[in-house]
Amino acid sequence: MISFVRLQFVGLAACIFFSTASISSDAVDIKDKLVLCESCHGGEDGMPVNADTPILAGQEYYYLYVQLKDYKAGRRANPIMSGMTAALSKDEMKALAEYYSSMEWTKIQPEIDQELADKGGSALGAGQCSQCHSKYQGDSRVPRLAGQQLPYMLQTMKDFKNKVRLNSPAKGSLMDSFSDEDLAAMANYLSGLQQP
């Protein structure tokens, strides 16, 4: 109900954000599952244990849910996450996505190569990335990229390019048109972006 009242007074971005928080999947108990997730993706602080593990806390609900579905269906290949999702039901996936998306985004201190990051800005322009990613803060099925873990982001961009991550075919063709150095430059730029 809180979401309704706030909806009245806040702008558009918030309208979408709060509406994601009002999904009710109370019926599904995910406590046991969460213990496992937290061992890699972090506990209440939302801080992943390793730099190759993405931040989930504060990520978009719909995006997270879709990733879990895609790992399970094999559209996104990853030895760890395929195993993690094999036994999850759709409702459990929704509940997990809801749990993480309702948390605050976790701020990290990534080790940015500033020179590379400066080049990244123009590569992002050439790729017209902001056409969908806007200011890189995430919206529904488009994930937040600003401040994401650097090694993870670079790896997943390469996975798009090398057709390991197949769950977004259009992005595969897009990443194809960039050199590995461009990808690194963009990853550095995006990881270093903080909230406006």
């Binding site: 269906a73 197949l166 977004s168 075919p169 259009a170 595969g172 063709s173």
Partner: peptide, 18 residues
Amino acid sequence: YHVESSPYPEGKLWLGGA
């Protein structure tokens, strides 16, 4: 017009190219 085949992605953008 570019074509690149990919299987049905269950509700994701499915242009089959670019």
